[in-house]
């Protein structure tokens, strides 16, 4: 039998090829282009080779931002994953209570990111913010996220937990609902306790969704920009200057396009590598 060749298929793929070319490939190639040149002005450029890359890799401020961001991401995972599982376990399984609590839980996910930042910026203020006022005047603790690096860090972290734990909770909730009832019955017949049911049935069955949750939360928190930009602008000092905030300071704040481009490419690579490490680690852990 002879294969029929139908070139019309190309026509169907064309819109995707065009839109991907314009939205992803062209900008990326522009970044690659910038990263090996020093852009002095329109039409004024100097070839610099790998100079920007070497510069970037050796930049101590950038190292600090990298470790800061890594620490932030690990704290995010450490809090949000267990908390999300706990919330999912606590949610009712059926009935109108289930629908209501799902909607309530999902609300933070529906809010635009810069609005989330604005909400927390106001919420944390000691004079007019509910949260800031409560901590300062009722708990009697001194808290000021615009002055204290520690307070700024905690504010951004708590904000991220508030914003994104629902995602983990929803994923886990879906995973839990997918466990057939006989698993629980079998455990009951064996006389297993709640902890054993969690450890031997629920957690292994959640492995797939947890893998997705960890990857999503890691990637997102490693690229976090909008919320801390709105709340702290990366300060005070460099306390909340995460990688993407640092990047935008260079590329847009100082309009240092070559440097910024080299940094972007390295940043991109880092995320790819870290995601790959997570992915294989979790898959391995499951297979053992």
């Amino acid at each position: 039998m002879q294969k029929t060749v139908n070139h019309r298929a190309w026509l169907l793929v064309l819109p995707v090829v065009l839109s991907v070319a314009f939205s992803a490939i062209l900008p990326l190639m522009t970044v690659v282009n910038y990263s090996v040149q020093d852009i002095l002005g329109p039409g004024q450029r100097v070839w610099v080779g790998n100079e920007w890359f070497i510069d970037t890799v050796r930049n101590p401020d950038l190292h600090a931002a990298f470790w800061r961001n890594l620490l932030f991401s690990f704290q995010v995972l450490l809090i949000q994953i267990p908390l999300g599982i706990a919330v999912a376990l606590a949610l009712p399984a059926k009935g109108w209570q289930a629908s209501l609590s799902l909607v309530l839980i999902a609300l933070p996910l529906l809010i635009p990111w810069n609005v989330v930042g604005t909400i927390w910026q106001i919420f944390g203020r000691a004079d007019i913010g509910l949260g800031g006022y409560f901590v300062n005047n009722i708990l009697g603790l001194s808290y000021n996220y615009t002055l204290e690096p520690r307070d700024a860090w905690i504010t951004v972290l708590v904000m991220d937990v508030w914003h994104w734990t629902p995602l983990v909770a929803l994923l886990c909730y879906a995973g839990l609902r997918a466990i057939p009832d006989p698993f629980y019955q079998a455990a009951r017949i064996d006389g297993a306790r709640l902890w054993s049911i969690f450890w031997y049935i629920q957690l292994p069955k959640l492995r797939g969704v947890l893998l997705i949750a960890v990857l999503l939360r890691f990637m997102d928190s490693f690229m976090i920009y909008t919320e801390p930009f709105v709340v702290t602008g990366g300060g005070p000092g460099t306390a909340t200057t995460f990688l993407s905030i640092y990047l935008s300071n260079i590329a847009i704040g100082q309009f240092d396009l070559g440097n910024g481009s080299a940094f972007s490419l390295i940043y991109f690579l880092l995320i790819q590598i870290l995601c790959f490490v997570f992915y294989t680690a979790i898959l391995r852990a499951g297979r053992k």
């Binding site: 079998a186 006389g191 031997y200």
Partner: peptide, 20 residues
């Protein structure tokens, strides 16, 4: 309750502890 009755149950789904 079932855990005090000494019964065993086999289901049409294949129910085993996945990580054991």
């Amino acid at each position: 309750p079932v855990q005090q009755r000494n019964v065993a149950f086999v289901y049409q789904q294949f129910i085993n502890y996945p990580s054991l």
